[in-house]
Computed example of a mutant assay.
Amino acid sequence: MSLKDSLTFKGTIATQLLRDQHILTVELSEGFLNNSIDAKKFLEHVDYSIYVHFPLEDNYLMPIFRPFLRKYLEFEEPIRVISGEHATIKRERQLIYRPNITESDEEVEISPDELFGKVGVIAKTLLQHVYKEENGLFELVDSYLPENEKKELSIKLEENMPILEKNFRK
């Protein structure tokens, strides 16, 4: 059974836009891991996640939810875990093609096996990440965030997604 089949991807207005994006993330991650999606197509989605999806969570969801998480649970571990995974995925993506250290360095070639392994790490990390958000952070947001803040979050996500997407496509 795939992860996609085990998750509902259903939430309140506060998380639904992000959950909808998770469906494609899971499809492409699983597709890469079972060799039905090539690395280039998968990495294009990883880049979208880094430049659109993660900023929606980091800049809107987490700041709005953080005070309520502290109020009800008195700790921020769910936010720290998710933020840390965002940083890990960004770092792993940057390491796919090793940059030249100095101008005199030759271009570093990556073997197909090395590429498959590095991209596989990102795919597995993304699947774990989505699972934690769907069953952890987003469930907490849907449970503890008051209705007015859910509406505010939904509006901010809807307003800013097109801006982030436009900047991503440039």
Rank of each mutant, 00 (worst) to 15 (best):
E109W: 10
V121H: 15
Q21A: 13
E85K: 06
A39E: 08
K10H: 07
E85L: 11
H86N: 04
S2V: 02
F116A: 13
I64W: 09
L127C: 08
K118T: 10
K166Y: 13
E134P: 08
T15C: 15
H53W: 01
S6W: 07
F138I: 02
H22A: 00
N160T: 07
E85A: 12
I37C: 07
K124L: 15
S111I: 08
E103R: 14
L140E: 06
Y60L: 13
I96P: 12
L153W: 01
F138C: 01
E152P: 00
M62E: 08
F54T: 05
D38T: 06
Y72Q: 05
S143M: 12
L145W: 02
A39T: 04
R80P: 06
I64M: 12
E77Y: 05
D20I: 02
D47Q: 10
I110L: 15
Q128K: 11
L73P: 00
V26G: 02
K156A: 14
E114R: 05
S143E: 09
L73T: 05
F138N: 00
D58V: 05
I101W: 15
G136K: 09
L153N: 02
T102H: 08
E152N: 13
E147A: 06
S29A: 13
S83F: 10
K151Q: 14
D58R: 05
I79M: 07
P112E: 12
Q21C: 10
L95S: 12
I122N: 03
H86F: 09
E158S: 08
H129I: 02
F32N: 00
Y72C: 09
E30V: 01
D142V: 03
Q94P: 03
M161E: 10
L7A: 11
I101A: 15
E106W: 05
L137A: 12
K151P: 09
Y131P: 12
Y60G: 06
E30T: 01
N160F: 01
